[in-house]
Amino acid sequence: MSVINVKNLVKKFGDLTAVNEISFEVQQGEVFGMLGPNGAGKTTTLEIIEGIQEPTSGQTSVLGMDSQKQSDEVKERIGVQLQASAYFDNLTLGEILDLFGSFYKKQLGPDKLLESVELRDKKNSLVKHLSGGQKQRFSIAASVVNDPELVFLDEPTTGLDPQARRHLWEYIRQINQQGKTIILTTHYMEEAQRLCDRVAIIDMGKIVALDTPANLINNLKSSYRINLTFAERMSAEIFKQVQGVIDARELTGDDQPQPRVQLRVNKAMESLPSLLGLVEQQEIRLEDIEMQPANLEDVFLELTGKELRD
């Protein structure tokens, strides 16, 4: 059963088309991810579904209700966490949850909510006294204050260190296990891959692919990524002639301490011997070789020709 239905959604800000004819459905009980770089149109799409922005054209419905025309009913039954949203500086966590709960017909008590994200002992603290991870956990607790059927999380782990991020995934999974459907946006490949049942890959206002993470990766032309580290700068061009190599490029940028070439291949074991043979003939010494199975990052790269991080 689909709980969210988006049809031909368009949102323009002046000359800029932020969302360009997007359509998709979200099924009940799943964790649905929208993966894409900043500015791809993820947040705008989410906020239109939540009923806090108006679309230029197209329809969005939540639990069978129109996001715009029945926005009050929709808002009663969804929980929302906004990207980089703060809460009142001069209220304690307990008071904030109590206050936000009072906006809904149905509400969960602050104690229970704080318990669920292990912030019970911070009930009387102010938000500004929490760490980044604690703030995000609190923000998730606040998003389920009305015991919603659907939870929208916009970039829930942005700005967190990897450990805090993994920690937060556990809470998101817990909420999902309570039977709540989750729709989240992220620009972290790993987050989408680990957390989401289905992922929509979004770029420049359009969905470029939508499937389970496993299917997205399996449908790639390349199944492996091979990184070759050289002692000196090495042109990527010569590797393109090797059989099975789909793409070869030099890695540049400040985060590259040494000259590297990245290859994407469809069958690593078949390509590797001829690759190594080619390297032997070169004057530049190979220092390191590294192989990775393809991930959503490669999906994005193959579909858009761009790195997710750019």
Binding site: I52, K75, V80, L82, S85, A86, F88, F100, F103, Y104
Partner: peptide
């Protein structure tokens, strides 16, 4: 302006209030 900057107004807009 603080409420707007911190997106508190938007957060309230996401509730039935």
């Amino acid at each position: 302006s603080l409420y707007r900057q911190q997106r508190i107004l938007k957060r309230i807009l996401a509730t039935p209030l």
